[in-house]
Design a protein around this nucleic acid. Sequence first.
DNA 1: ATCAAATTAAAACGTAAGTTTGAAACGCTT
DNA 2: AAGCGTTTCAAACTTACGTTTTAATTTGAT
Lengths: 213, 213
Amino acid sequence: MEASRPDTATRILDVSERLFVEHGFEATSLRMITQQAEVNLAAVNYHFGSKDALFESVFMRRLAPLIASCLAELDELEAREEKLSVESLVTTFIRPCLALSKDPARGGALFVRLLSRTLVENHRLLRETISQQYSVFVQRYSRAFHHALPELGVEELAWRMHFAFSVMFNAFAGNDVLKIFTRSQIVSARDPDMIVKYLVPFVVAGLVSPVEG
Amino acid sequence: MEASRPDTATRILDVSERLFVEHGFEATSLRMITQQAEVNLAAVNYHFGSKDALFESVFMRRLAPLIASCLAELDELEAREEKLSVESLVTTFIRPCLALSKDPARGGALFVRLLSRTLVENHRLLRETISQQYSVFVQRYSRAFHHALPELGVEELAWRMHFAFSVMFNAFAGNDVLKIFTRSQIVSARDPDMIVKYLVPFVVAGLVSPVEG
DNA sequence: ATCAAATTAAAACGTAAGTTTGAAACGCTT
DNA sequence: AAGCGTTTCAAACTTACGTTTTAATTTGAT
């Protein structure tokens, strides 16, 4: 028996996710999407209402579970340990990202790249909808890191978290600044596990480094 | 006497730089550009040939001097010191970025954001033209970091440089992952000098952290 | 002042975009 | 099998895009 063909809406979501990552939102046309999804052009507007609403659907399908996974890991860790290590905190974020990256059924590494693109493109969706729904994400991690690194002031901690999530995020998204300048794809030919092997120590070292006098 | 109005080509470049950053290449139309630059629609194609060529001009106007500044700092440092510290190496990259960020006449922080967008959008320009012209950039930094951190294997060093440039780059571009989830703009309300105060220690700590047994 | 080159201007061209429409096909309950 | 809401389909609509064209204007050297 063959794998049953997903319904129209799902086919549209899957193809859109890939095309939005490859070409960006503006450069991806509904005709490209519907052609590759083998559905009628009007199907997008019928099922989602508009191209903008389609984008939001593509986005939220992956983001909600990812955030939930991170917070679940955080819950579990806080229930298990009294004093949280920075490395274990970092891992609560990295493990769900890693799991997502290795699971083609959930879009694999595609969604992290989409998130990255969307962040840089500064979509209205991010500024409005998501920042309201998931502000708890930052709050939880801020509290946890504050307990793990009590010697850091709030400003310094905010910066270090900013840097830490920035580098983790771009690592999973495969955004290699240096590949701009060189053809070698050594780093970008990414085995997700390899990323973590080098990523965690780097991030932890930056987070725990002693404050300057 | 009033400031003389720049010539048409310059006005187009200035407006394009801002609009490409704000809306991206695809979402920026020649009509938006020429309208805000107060020039005729046909001026873009007359002076630059095409929208693609305009983008390349916008991009190279800033990139070439920035790269040159970094390499000049590197030259100067290598001529002055025998053994290079990681921090001084990091600074050869950060100082030109900082100078650029603080100089509105050269586009200020705009160009770093444009570079960031272009990287994520994976433009043909980056894959082809620039990687050939500026591969020396990566080579120089790779050699310098290898001398400063001889105990690191080539693979581990490549990853750490990848992470280091990633976080520096995103810091200057103002790409704050966490701002997705929270309205507070504490981190993003960026005084460039503040960035450096916290950025350098973070990056250096990650780069020099001991290799794991 | 003149003339050739460079630049600006207005208008139109062909194409592709997102969206809408109305009919046909389908699936399910009765 | 009939009827009805849901979904699919082909086609057309409006709009905006990048680009080209042709003429008007400005510029600069003789």
